[in-house]
Design a protein around this nucleic acid. Structure first.
Lengths: 131, 131
DNA sequence: GTTGACATTTGCCATTTGGCGAATTATAAT
DNA sequence: ATTATAATTCGCCAAATGGCAAATGTCAAC
């Protein structure tokens, strides 16, 4: 086990597959990785190796570097992904998040912030109730 | 077994270690990978995972991309130098959205994409119901 | 030749990955 | 409601990784 692993890589991979409108079997055929393994990866039951990531990056519409960085195999600074990473008020924006959001209309992007604000308030009040 | 594997990665890694004038124990201490495993890798008895490569790249004086490409985990074309200007798949990201999101932890940023995906699915199925 | 320090290799095993084939679940058509 | 098909999940197992601790090899000093 490696501490650098992403906790939601499987979900990211599933989202990529759904975005490309592929079934597990179709992605399996395109990538050469078995559908049962892909299912386990998406559910978080297995962590994909570098070999697997290379095979599924293109069918899922990812840059290889991007996917390796998401998986924690490449550190952001050396994969080149971070070179495009703008800094905003001292914070860093994940390149994957930026890329996906950029494909949406501006209204949707801003709505996302509204939803995030609501969820944060909800989380805060939930924490207060638990105290 | 993966066909993309390099047959001489172990030797390349050994050469890097010798060039840096390190023993297996020293490289182990610097990288956090056990010396016995490093020895097996150098002799070709084990093939290092992406996690191991990330840990040993810097002590050996390699760029991470370079070592991953040597190992066959990254294809050469996609591990090249990133373009200097930010690109988001042809779309533009609202600066306000970028600034706000950048203030959140990376996990939260990625969760936001998950929520967006769910909402889009809901919207799509709602549109289908309306038709 | 012996000894000790240092470096590397080996035996072993727990853990994890990845694929086959079957089972289960979901979905669409009737 | 039923049935067929599509999609996903599961049981199982072989293969591979990675680390501990011990064993072996190398070399310098005596």
């Amino acid at each position: 086990m490696d501490q650098n692993r992403s906790t939601n890589l499987g979900e990211i991979i599933r989202q990529g597959r759904v975005t490309q409108r592929l079934t597990l079997s179709q992605l399996s055929a395109m990538s050469g990785v078995s559908s049962s393994h892909l299912g386990r990866i998406e559910r978080g039951e297995r962590y994909p190796s570098g070999s697997i990531l290379r095979k599924i990056a293109e069918p899922l519409g990812f840059e290889e570097n991007e996917l390796f960085t998401l998986a924690g195999y490449l550190t952001p600074t050396s994969s080149g992904v971070a070179e495009s990473r703008p800094r905003y008020g001292g914070g860093e924006l994940d390149p994957y998040v930026a890329r996906i959001l950029a494909q949406e209309p501006i209204d949707v992007q801003r709505a996302v912030i509204g939803i995030l604000t609501i969820l944060k308030s909800l989380a805060l009040s939930t924490v207060k109730e638990s105290a």
